[in-house]
Design a protein around this nucleic acid. Sequence first.
DNA 1: GTCTATAAATCGATAGAC
DNA 2: GTCTATCGATTTATAGAC
Lengths: 198, 198
Amino acid sequence: MTRAESGRVRFPAAERREQILAVAADAFAVAGFHGTSIAEVAAKVGVSQPGLLHHFPSKDALILALLQQRDLQDEQALAAEFAGVDASTREWLVAHCRRNETQPGLVRLFTVQSAESLDPAHPAHEFFRERNRRVRGHIVRLIERDQETGRLPASLDPADTAAELVSLMNGLQLQWLRDPSVDMCGIFETSMRRLEKR
Amino acid sequence: MTRAESGRVRFPAAERREQILAVAADAFAVAGFHGTSIAEVAAKVGVSQPGLLHHFPSKDALILALLQQRDLQDEQALAAEFAGVDASTREWLVAHCRRNETQPGLVRLFTVQSAESLDPAHPAHEFFRERNRRVRGHIVRLIERDQETGRLPASLDPADTAAELVSLMNGLQLQWLRDPSVDMCGIFETSMRRLEKR
DNA sequence: GTCTATAAATCGATAGAC
DNA sequence: GTCTATCGATTTATAGAC
């Protein structure tokens, strides 16, 4: 294995990018950013390491593109599912959870990277800061609307409750990844119904 | 900087070990296992890299010793605080939280390593599996005792509730590390009081 | 679009002197 | 208990050919 044919199996750039992102998603989800080498990703894709860097200029650019793409995809998929539906906070979050239950790889990617990115030197540090801000803001609005319609008690502090719900969801994901027998969404829904009771 | 004096500033083994563990705790908490090099830890301690490896035979041994020591220390400190006290689940867990609030470095170490150790190849994979099992088991017993004394509703499922409380605590830690303005323990206590009602 | 070749740095770990 | 020296493997990234 050295030369013979070289530059074999060419793909359109867009397609090759998707292949790389798919393999990188698994790798970063399992071993984290520093535990994954782009050479290892390239090998699994079936391309040389410089071949990979032709599509993504650096390792930092790769993981950032990966997280942004997957986050956007997931957000849009769920938004489409709830287009025009007047869902309660519980319905919306439980649906999100059920969706997560079908894609453990994606959950693991974001759980691992979320913790790793606490480091200001991590390439996705700002990405996760902003993402967290956005998610909490969204939930705050859901809660406030539920309070107006009486679906949630007015006594709840929207900001604190949003922080609690995000925390519970993130923590349950970690528990579930470590032990899949944990009823992630069942426990979350039980907790949300307790919130609804006066 | 080369030779001149060499082997300077000797320390008793026990003391040097503690110095190494202290520096390693910060490093692994910030950059994770793969993001930290033992040479970097050694330099901050003021010892050569082989000098460090004299006290811990490998990088794996270092982080494992670190996690076990810190976990044991923390567990004993809190156990001493509650010696002979008949604390409720809420009191016990909130006290744990308040203690955590005073040591963000330790919280960060365990939060980051907990996620990173989802990888079966991580040196602390089994450590965190076992630790999680133990912690949840302990909380299950606290809940069952509170149910017997009527401090918690008998309708709660102890195992699911323990998983929920551990998840909420872990998730809040992540939120708090990312944004220290989050009222980690206040939110946790509010959630626990909601559990007690009804 | 993909490769080979290689640079330049860093990694964990060992050997052996003091 | 600590060091220097060094091995061997691995890392990200670039240069340049096809």
